[in-house]
């Protein structure tokens, strides 16, 4: 089975946002980067499917030169090769523009199965995988928590709200957006890191110019609507204050 996994590079969770002077983007030079979390699960699922059914896993990333670091990481975890659609404008592109760039590079590969994360931790469009499916003319299903493959067909478990699930079947080739927690992640071994150095990374330009559908006018720290009472002092002073307030003001403990 020829499997593609779309991976995005995003700022780490510890990163403290700092904005560019025009307040329309983040200062990238201050950010440290990592693999978007759901994409790590998508990659793991791809690797497991390959182990079971044979074939190859190709990671596909769209973005500026900096995204090489997550491509290398994915190769070290076990992906066979990579496609990097490189363009400065893809660093902040919206879901449709990103999917167009990916579709242009992925079409000729004729993948049997394409896995993406359900959502990116930076822009959070929750669009790219589904738009990619539409662009490639493939059926899709989203927020997937289990994947079964048999006789050229997929049976996948979709997560619904509030602890509900649903199985959905469809023919391959198809596109799935993967939810965090679908499997237990593996991490790169030293052997994997060494092996990754010899793996192919094909760098291509977008097939057509990146056309944005959304424009960010400004970025800002969200305004607070609720007044939080911050507990002052050392940990034990704050704890004493909190217990008193929970008892006497909020009356939520005895």
């Amino acid at each position: 089975m020829k499997i593609a996994v779309c991976i995005k590079q995003v700022p780490t969770r510890e990163w403290q946002p700092r904005l560019t002077d025009d307040k329309r983007g983040i200062r990238e030079q201050d950010a440290s980067w990592e693999l978007n979390e759901p994409d790590a699960y998508a990659l793991e699922e791809g690797l497991r499917l390959k182990e079971k059914h044979g074939g190859e896993v190709v990671v596909c990333a769209a973005g500026p030169a900096r995204v090489t670091s997550v491509i290398r990481e994915a190769l070290a975890r076990g992906a066979d090769r990579a496609i990097h659609v490189q363009d400065a404008a893809l660093g902040r592109a919206d879901g449709i523009a990103t999917a167009d760039a990916l579709a242009g590079a992925m079409r000729e590969e004729a993948f049997d199965l394409i896995l993406t994360g359900l959502q990116s931790d930076d822009q959070g469009h929750a669009q790219t995988g589904v738009v990619l499916a539409a662009r490639l003319g493939r059926p899709h299903a989203t927020i997937i928590m289990e994947v079964q493959v048999a006789d050229g067909r997929l049976r996948v478990k979709r997560e619904l709200e509030g602890g509900w699930f649903q199985w959905v079947a469809m023919a391959l080739p198809a596109v799935l957006t993967i939810q965090s927690g679908i499997n237990q992640l593996r991490y790169a071994t030293l052997k994997g890191i060494m092996a990754s150095k010899k793996k192919e990374v094909r760098v291509v330009a977008p097939a057509s110019p990146v056309t944005p559908r959304l424009e960010v006018l400004s970025l800002y720290v969200p305004e607070k609507t609720k007044r939080t009472e911050i507990l002052a002092g050392s940990a034990s002073e704050a704890a004493a204050t909190l217990v008193r307030k929970l008892r006497e003001d909020a009356r939520v403990i005895a």
């Binding site: 919206d94 879901g95 449709i96 469009h125 669009q127 589904v130 738009v131 539409a134 899709h140 979709r158």
Partner: peptide, 24 residues
């Protein structure tokens, strides 16, 4: 509404119309 069902079909609808979609 930005429900799981919307997440499942709205991007495909936007793609087939080839129009902008702002989420969440």
């Amino acid at each position: 509404p930005h429900t799981y069902q919307t997440r499942d079909f709205a991007p495909a609808l936007a793609a087939s119309l080839d129009r902008a979609l702002v989420t969440d």
